[in-house]
């Protein structure tokens, strides 16, 4: 394929053709182009290199590039599919697609499982859930007695760990979220149905004729 004019020069490493990304995700070409406007904004906020670094991700999430958060770290790592410490545009679009209202429940359930499987062992272990509870409590500056944390863990595992081996496997997780669908609310971002309105400037850079 040729590379005409100046078009290729402004495309950073990791940039992917919006038409290909649209074909592989829940987004239309226009929506991918609108997401590129968001991506450019986030990826240029600290280091203007067309890649999202962890600091930039934290800045976009918390308005603070130094704020450390267990879950933001996990989300960043899952978005960074190539595991090279940065989120490229293609990774950004493919990962966000899981959060699209039209994406499958199965994709959302799988992503959430990976998110909570902190040590990536293929199971959500009791220690991992405890670590996450402690993180959320410290984030909200709530002091909760150790017995209360134990009681929350007992309740959760008595409901989710149906084979009682002390950890939640993928099948148990799927059954558990089907019984508790509210747990999947965080896996859908209504904004994603509306990205072209949020970032209307994409039309000035659009490569497709019908960008409506």
């Amino acid at each position: 394929m040729g590379c005409f004019g100046s078009k290729c020069l402004k495309e950073p490493p990791g940039y992917e053709n919006p038409a290909i990304l649209a074909a592989e995700t829940a987004f239309s070409v226009s929506e991918v182009e609108a997401l590129y406007e968001l991506f450019k904004k986030i990826s240029s906020s600290v280091i203007d290199d067309g890649l999202i670094h962890k600091e930039e991700f934290q800045l976009a999430l918390f308005r603070n590039s130094k704020r450390e958060n267990l879950f933001a770290d996990r989300v960043f790592d899952l978005f960074d599919v190539k595991r090279n410490g940065v989120i490229e545009f293609g990774e950004f679009v493919r990962s966000l697609s899981v959060f699209h209202p039209n994406s499958s429940f199965e994709d959302k359930v799988n992503f959430a499982f990976k998110l909570y499987d902190l040590r990536q062992t293929g199971f959500i272990e009791r220690e991992e859930v405890e670590q996450m509870i402690v993180a959320i409590l410290s984030e909200s500056e709530m002091e909760v007695a150790a017995e209360v944390i134990e009681a929350i863990l007992d309740k959760t595992f008595s409901e989710a760990d149906t084979n009682m081996d002390g950890r939640i496997d993928h099948q148990e997780w799927t059954a558990y979220v089907l019984k508790n669908p509210s747990l999947m609310k965080i896996m859908t971002l209504p904004y994603l149905k509306d990205v072209t309105t949020c970032f209307p400037s994409f039309v000035f850079n659009s490569e497709v004729e019908d960008a409506s």
């Binding site: 879950f71 996990r74 989300v75 996450m132 984030e139 929350i152 959760t156 965080i186």
Partner: peptide, 25 residues
């Protein structure tokens, strides 16, 4: 007191999981 909240309900309240912040201007 009986515990009524499960761990994942609690966890899903984390700001770090609130990706809608990415879209705030």
């Amino acid at each position: 007191k009986p515990v009524t909240m499960n761990a994942f309900e609690l966890i899903s309240m984390s700001q770090g999981l609130n990706l809608s912040n990415l879209f705030e201007k």
